[in-house]
Amino acid sequence: MSRRRYENILRFMHFSDNSLCPPREHPQFDRLYKIRPLITHFAARFAEAYTPGRNICVDESLMKYKGRLGFKQYIPSKRSRYGVKVYKLCDSESGYTQAFRVYEGKDSSLDPPGCPEHMGTSGKIVWDLLFPLMNKGYHLYFDFYTSVPLFKLLYCFDTAACGTVRKNRVGFPAQLVRTRLKRGETSALRQEELLAVKYRDKKDVYLLSTIHTERSVEVSVRGRAERIRKPVCIKTYNRHMGGVDLADQLLQPYQIMRKSRAWYKKVAIYLMQIATHNAFLLCKKANPGVTLSFLQFQLQVISGFLYQDAHAPRAVMGDRVGATHFIFKIPPY
C-alpha cells in the first residue's frame, strides 16, 4: 500500500452518516455521534468475550489531544495533560478493559439504568460501568469516586468496595480526621459493614472499605531494613488498584496515533488499540504455554489483515547478502 493510498483511507474514514446527525439544539444530540457505532460495538464485545476475576478497578485514562474540542480535559497529573478522558473498568490482575465510557463534558446527561437519582456524578459513572457485574460478588477498587452512600449502595447489590477518600467527604467520620497519629500508626472506625481507616505514612491516608477488617500486617519497605506495620486494606488496595495503569503501560510503547485535527479519528484508533490489547490478553489466556509478546502479537495481526489466506512472502537468501536488502514482488491474493 502506498502512502497516498493510506492517507486517502485515513482521510475518508467515517463511522456514521453525518447527514443523519441531530442538530446541536436537538434534545437527542450526541457529541459522540461520529463514533457511537464503534463505541457500542466494542463495549458489547469487551463484555461478552471475557469474565474478569474477583478483583476489578475503576480509573480514568487520558488520550492525548490538543486540538479544539468542547470536552477536552486538562489533567496535570497525567503525562499527556490535555486530551479526551476515558473512564475504564479493568480486571486488576490482567488489565483487561471490561467496560469503558468516553467523557462528554460536565453538562452531559448521565442516567444509568437502576441508579438512584440522588447519586452524584461520580457515583453514576461507577454504577454505569459496573451495572452488568452487580450481584456477582465482585471486589471493586477505585479512588476519585469514593463516597459513603455509594459504598452502602454497592454493598446492597453484593458488591464490596475499597478506595481512598477525601477527609471532607460527606459521611466520613470527623472524629477520625481529628485523630493525631505518628508515622506508621493506624486508627479505624466501623459502622456495620463500612470500615473507615486513617493511616499515617508520609502524610495522612484515608480509606473506606466494605471488604476488609482493621487487621494490620508487617510489610517491607524498599530502601529500609526494618519492616513496618500497615493495614491490610491499604496493602490490598495498592495491589489491586493498578489494572487501568497496567493496560496503559502496555499500550504506551506502541502508540499508533498520528497528529490529526479530527478528534473522532484519534479516539477511534485509541479504541482499536484497546481492542488489540484485550485480544492479546485473550490469546495468552487461551494459549498458556505459548510465549508471545505484545509486539509479536500485533505483527501477526497486521500480517493476517494484509495477507489473509495467502502466505506472507519470504525472502530468499543470496550468495553473499541476504535478499531482505532488495526489493521483491508481493504475489497477488
Rank of each mutant, 00 (worst) to 15 (best):
G123Q: 07
D245L: 05
V232Q: 14
A312R: 02
L69P: 00
F131C: 05
P37K: 04
A160W: 05
Y103H: 13
H139Q: 13
P116F: 08
E226Y: 13
F280W: 11
K72C: 13
V148H: 10
Q252V: 04
L295W: 14
K85G: 12
A161L: 01
R258W: 08
K34N: 00
V84F: 01
L282F: 13
K136Y: 15
Y254M: 06
E193M: 07
I256Y: 09
L140W: 14
G114D: 02
R314I: 06
C283M: 09
G67P: 10
P23R: 05
A225G: 07
S260N: 13
E25K: 11
A160K: 09
T213Q: 10
A160M: 07
T164M: 12
V290Y: 09
Y141C: 02
A315V: 07
P253C: 09
K230I: 13
A310G: 01
I39P: 03
Y6W: 10
K88G: 01
R5Q: 05
Y206A: 10
N55Q: 14
D204Y: 14
S80N: 15
L306G: 00
P112Y: 13
V232P: 09
Q308A: 05
Y264E: 01
G137V: 10
G53F: 13
S2V: 03
Q191K: 09
R54S: 14
N135C: 07
G120P: 02
E93V: 12
R45T: 05
E48W: 15
Y65D: 07
W263L: 01
N287K: 12
D91C: 12
L130C: 08
K329V: 05
S2R: 02
D17T: 02
L133C: 05
S147V: 03
R320M: 04
P112G: 09
I256H: 06
S187D: 02
S122H: 11
G304I: 01
F305I: 04
M241K: 15
R54V: 13
L194H: 11
R36A: 03
P313Q: 03
G67A: 10
K34F: 01
F42G: 01
Y138S: 07
A160I: 01
A315T: 06
S94F: 12
K72H: 13
M257A: 10
D248V: 07
I234P: 02
G289A: 12
P253W: 14
N168F: 13
K72W: 09
P231Q: 12
Q98L: 14
R81F: 11
M134Q: 12
S260I: 01
A196Q: 03
F29I: 00
G70A: 10
E218N: 13
L129K: 12
A161V: 03
G67R: 09
A174M: 07
H14T: 06
F172Y: 15
F294S: 04
D248T: 08
P253Y: 15
S109M: 07
I35D: 00
Q296G: 05
C21H: 03
E93S: 12
K182P: 01
K182L: 08
G304R: 04
K124P: 03
